[in-house]
Nucleic acid binder design. Structure first.
Lengths: 228, 228
DNA sequence: CGCATTGTGTCGCGTTCTCGACAGTCTGGG
DNA sequence: CCCAGACTGTCGAGAACGCGACACAATGCG
């Protein structure tokens, strides 16, 4: 699998970034950015999920958007130097390509196609965020739990996701005990199997039936604006 | 009062947009964009508030961000043609300047300063959205109510805001009866006065003490990234 | 193997908010 | 002036979720 933004670059544009790309493995839990950090590196995941989390004063860290193979982390730094506004953390182990923000900025200056990718990506990420604003206000934990699993499942090539209920509770901004209850309900329906830090997705259609419209809305936004 | 983005433009750059600006009055409730509408006009409010609302399938319309004199509506269309992803509706009567997206795009091509304003504005709006994601998941209706009032108050030159509880309930994504209860509580504390479609802000400090950190976070983000 | 650590299941109470219903009050237009 | 429509106040049942406590199970490490 290959990052879809990079894969969609015409050969001429790829020549502007390809020589600077470094391939790396990102382990689960790796902290890439905290609020205020200068964005000096841009990451293009080939698979896996990177979460953008908004930090609160009391230490809560709640997910505001995700980055997967359809996009890139820190892409707005291609336009001009930027500080991160979120915590960026690796959700599932990722293979990824990385490039310095300065080098990407050089390519951005030279290529209209790259500028358009960056622009569309920003738009898609904004769309993701505003849908999440509504989702968090209106939808049940159960629906959001399903949405999260499906979003994650779309970005990995596996039916198994490694994550603890404690962590998922953080992502969704709810109590762990609530996550436990929801996970048990989904397991009883046969949609997932939950064991110590590992979720198996068994019935994807079942999850889709229980999630809210937000899953589809965000997915279609990405399909409309980004290649692949 | 004057839109702060326009006011901060150096004379040379202002010359690129000034001749195309039209001054208009926007009445309360005026619908400027619905999801999918092409963004053909950019609005620079001189005062007042324009709300960006995410529409849901069931007709719910919940606020995801606001636009005031510190910013502009549809500014991302200066970069490239765009369709709106939200409903944009005039929250309080506004004086505003407007320009076609095509004309603004011309100025954007010529002026690095304008490009930077657009870029920073996009960043600030994104920051607003991701904070709201967290806020809607974690904070009480009371805190969010106060945040909304304060945000609105910052953008108008008056201690009186015209809005119904029904409408405010929509903005916050809660039941009207909940808004009624919260409004009564704030009135009993002497922070606001509520009468048929009109809120008077009496004790701003009181509201600030009851709102969540999100109010200050978003405000500082705007101050950091935008002029004024 | 034994132990400390980490993750999960469960219980119970309290609060917040939903949801539906209905009555009362203000306001503008005919 | 009166009426229809719009807005607000109130009530009550119930669901969803927060929050703290505790027991138990799995894992990794010495």
């Amino acid at each position: 699998m290959q990052n879809r933004l990079l894969a969609a670059l015409p050969p001429a544009e790829y020549g502007l970034v390809g020589p600077y790309l470094t391939h790396i493995e990102l382990p689960r839990g790796r902290l890439l950015y905290d609020p205020g950090d200068p964005i000096d590196t841009v990451y293009f995941p080939h698979d896996g999920v990177i979460s953008l989390m908004t930090l609160m004063d009391n230490g809560a860290a709640i997910e505001s958007a995700t980055i997967g193979p359809e996009g890139a982390l820190g892409l707005m730094a291609a336009v001009a130097p930027r500080a991160s506004m979120s915590r960026a953390i690796v959700q599932t182990p990722c293979r990824a390509a990385r490039i310095t923000a300065a080098q990407l900025h050089g390519a951005w200056q030279k290529s209209p196609a790259i500028r358009q990718f960056v622009d569309n990506h920003t738009e898609a990420l904004f769309g993701h965020a505003i849908q999440s604003v509504a989702c968090n206000a209106l939808h049940s934990v159960e629906a959001r739990f399903c949405r999260w699993l499906l979003t994650c499942h779309d970005r990995i090539s596996d039916n198994t996701v490694a994550l603890t209920q404690e962590f998922l509770a953080d992502m969704l901004g709810v109590q762990r005990t609530t996550v436990t209850a929801v996970a048990r309900a989904l397991q009883e329906r046969g949609y997932i199997r939950y064991r110590r830090g590992i979720v198996d997705i068994i019935d994807r259609d079942g999850l889709e039936a229980m999630t809210c419209e937000c899953y589809g809305v965000v997915k279609r936004t990405y399909e409309r604006l980004l290649p692949g």
